[in-house]
Computed example of a mutant assay.
Amino acid sequence: MSQVITTTPLTGRVAVVTGASSGIGEATAERLAQLGAKVAVAARRQENLDALVARITEAGGTALAVALDVTDREAVREAAQRVERELGRVDLVVNNAGVQLISPIEDLKVDDWQRQIDLNVTGVMNVLGAFVPQLIASAADGGPADLITTSSIAATRVLEKFSVYSGTKAYISHFSRLARVELGRKMVRVSAVEPGMVDTELPDHVTDPDASKLMADLLNDIECLSPADVAETIAFIASVPRHVNLTEITILPTAQAV
């Protein structure tokens, strides 16, 4: 019997996407909804979330806006309960919220260091802690279950002035490998997506003039990835058969050399 091909392979699934108010998170939420998933979109900017939910709903999808600071562990736990109550048990988590603040070490921008650690590491762990029980339960019932985290090529590349940011992304990539050892046995797939240069608002957060120029030049000189490119990759990871785990995917613009 030939396999039936569907244009909505995520029908019946419930997803949560953090950092969904812009960029990769926003594009991913829209793509998952297009493919049939009910999507909870989480970020701090309520107005952006409301606009995203409106677009998804107008296109025939189902979405829920959850105003959330992922660094607040109790708020994340409450959000997980709300999503399960209103959309159903979550079986797809896109752990995407993050910030990029680049500067030389000797500038001692310790507040920037801490902000990156709080959001890129602690925030990721808060989301994992809140939603992993739902992922395990979904997998135990025989369905697919995915924990997908947005890392970066900075996790493995040696890039000047990226030291703290790169350190947080290296944590994410390696933690995903270790978590896979435990969660894979429970049929929860764990994946890390490592994009290169993406045309998002993250470069706008960079205050160091040299680093800002470097990123601006890249955006001007080559055809960078779009958020939709990364979103399509995340959607593909979630759409493959349950026994297939695409563990680490690096996505680069063709013209990006480093």
Rank of each mutant, 00 (worst) to 15 (best):
S2R: 09
G142N: 06
N48A: 15
A51V: 05
Q81I: 06
A43L: 08
Q34L: 12
T57W: 09
T8E: 09
L218V: 01
I222G: 02
T11M: 12
G19F: 14
P9W: 02
P144F: 02
R177W: 10
P195N: 14
T254V: 12
L225M: 11
E248I: 13
R115E: 14
N95M: 13
T149K: 13
D208S: 01
I251Y: 02
R73L: 03
V198M: 12
A231I: 02
V66H: 10
A228I: 01
A154L: 12
I153V: 15
A231W: 03
M197G: 01
A140L: 09
A238F: 01
F236T: 03
S166V: 06
W113H: 07
S152G: 14
L119R: 08
A40S: 06
A235S: 09
D69Y: 10
V66F: 10
D204H: 14
I251E: 00
P203Q: 09
D111G: 01
G12W: 12
I234Q: 01
V66A: 10
S176D: 13
N245K: 03
T62F: 00
T122G: 00
I56Y: 03
L128T: 08
T122P: 00
F236V: 01
F162Q: 05
G23H: 05
T8N: 08
E201D: 15
V53F: 04
I237C: 01
L183I: 07
R31F: 00
I222R: 04
M125I: 11
V127E: 11
I102P: 01
G23Y: 04
G143L: 05
A130N: 12
I105L: 14
A154M: 11
D141I: 09
D210G: 11
T233R: 07
V132Q: 02
N220Q: 10
Q34T: 12
T250W: 04
L183F: 06
T18K: 14
L135R: 05
K213H: 01
S173V: 13
P133K: 14
A211C: 09
A139G: 04
A231R: 03
T57Q: 08
N126R: 05
E106C: 04
V190K: 06
A170D: 06
I136K: 14
S239W: 04
R115N: 13
T254W: 09
E74C: 00
S22R: 13
S22D: 15
V190I: 12
E78I: 04
T8Q: 12
L135H: 04
S21Y: 13
A42H: 10
V17S: 07
D229I: 02
P144T: 04
E248K: 15
S212I: 02
D50L: 15
S166R: 07
N126K: 05
L183E: 07
T122R: 11
I222D: 03
A65I: 00
S212N: 11
A40K: 04
A137V: 11
G196E: 07
V110M: 14
L64H: 09
T57M: 08
M197Y: 03
V53T: 09
L147Q: 06
V258G: 00
L219T: 10
A54T: 02
I24Q: 06
P253I: 00
L52A: 00
D72C: 09
A42S: 12
S21A: 15
V66G: 06
L159W: 07
P104D: 03
V76P: 00
P133M: 13
D204Q: 15
D229C: 01
A54K: 05
A97Q: 14
I117N: 03
V181Y: 12
E58F: 01
